[in-house]
């Protein structure tokens, strides 16, 4: 028992050190970091003091956005920091921070010595980017309230809170499983064989496969949970959010971590929408609703109000 624990700890330590090592690769020893500051500035921090005359020369820097290497951005002003360790590059045109930029620094001069040239990649914090995908799919571009997808299941299963939550959790599990599978299929089978035009057919097949697999396995392994899911598991196949997410992933060429975050956010967003809606609809049962509005019509009105409330998130940018 003790040994197993020891191995687990070691495995965790190895993984963490690998992540740390991969995080620090590709850096010139004298450039400690380079990052965006606002829309017009990039700040380079050196490990030690650099010569001011060298730092002020525009010719010593070259920068371009990673997708278009032949378009060099022009630096309009250079402000060396007071401690001589930082250099502030000012661009008159706004920089697109969503794209990584390649910064070349030539012949770094420090204490009259030439320390050679280096190439640094300037990009936004990657975990921040992942987090923004998650929150984006969860709240800002909530699939139900801002894109109006998956409404049939949304209205069909939001009458009672317990069923709504059960449906939401089932949905989240199937969503993540099928999105990850679709990502792997798209990257490793459809793209190499140039079959991109078949993506909708293949993704629908994968969704039904994962639903059927969950159904079969769950029936045997956990009958109580299976009973709780009931008919909703099969209903997931007929949902359009579950098809929309793999299509978005394929369109944006997301990698594994990004697709996981997007599908998790979409699933959690659907769960949130179902939970909110079912809470309101349970209260509506007690309200004095005009006869013509009872049932589905008032539910549509409520969904509209929710959509209005979710509009408050629109245009929000994280990181």
């Amino acid at each position: 028992m003790k040994f197993i624990k020891c191995y687990k700890l070691m495995a965790v330590a190895v993984v963490i050190s690998l992540v740390l090592i991969s995080g620090c690769k590709n850096k010139h020893s004298y450039v400690s970091k380079a990052k965006f500051k606002g829309d017009h500035n990039i700040i380079i921090t050196f490990a030690g003091e650099v010569d001011t005359a060298w730092a002020k020369d525009v010719k010593n820097y070259g920068i371009y956005a990673k997708p278009d290497p032949d378009i060099q951005l022009t630096i309009s002003k250079i402000i060396p920091g007071s401690d001589k360790k930082t250099v502030d590059l000012y661009f008159s045109d706004a920089i697109d921070q969503n794209q990584p930029h390649i910064l070349t620094i030539k012949n770094i001069m420090a204490d009259g010595k030439n320390l050679g040239s280096t190439v640094v990649e300037v990009k936004k914090l990657y975990f921040g980017f992942l987090f923004s995908i998650l929150i984006g799919a969860f709240l800002i571009h909530n699939f139900v309230f801002t894109k109006y997808l998956g409404l049939c299941v949304f209205f069909g299963t939001s009458q009672k809170q317990s069923t709504a939550v059960g449906m939401g959790i089932t949905f989240m599990i199937v969503m993540v499983a099928s999105a990850m599978m679709s990502w792997a299929f798209y990257q490793f089978i459809l793209k190499p064989f140039h079959l991109n035009f078949l993506q909708i057919v293949v993704f629908i097949g994968l969704v039904s496969l994962s639903v059927q697999a969950v159904d079969t396995v769950l029936r045997k392994i956990n009958p109580a949970l299976f009973k709780a899911f009931g008919v909703y598991l099969v209903l997931v196949i007929a949902n359009c959010v579950i098809l929309a997410v793999p299509l978005i992933i394929a369109n944006n060429e997301y990698n594994a971590a990004e697709s996981f975050m997007l599908s998790l956010g979409a699933g959690a967003g659907f769960l949130l929408a179902l939970f909110l809606m079912s809470s309101v609809r349970e209260k509506l049962e007690l309200a004095n609703v005009p006869v013509t509005y009872r049932g589905l019509p008032i539910a549509f009105v409520v969904a509209g109000l929710f959509a209005l409330a979710f509009m408050g998130f629109s245009g929000m940018v994280i990181f």
């Binding site: 097949g205 496969l209 059927q212 697999a213 079969t216 396995v217 029936r219 045997k220 392994i221 009958p223």
Partner: peptide
């Protein structure tokens, strides 16, 4: 399709209720 079909069939047999 064939691989997945066989996989599902085997799974159904293994987890038969």
């Amino acid at each position: 399709g064939l691989v997945f079909g066989i996989g599902l069939a085997l799974a159904a047999q293994k987890f038969a209720v």
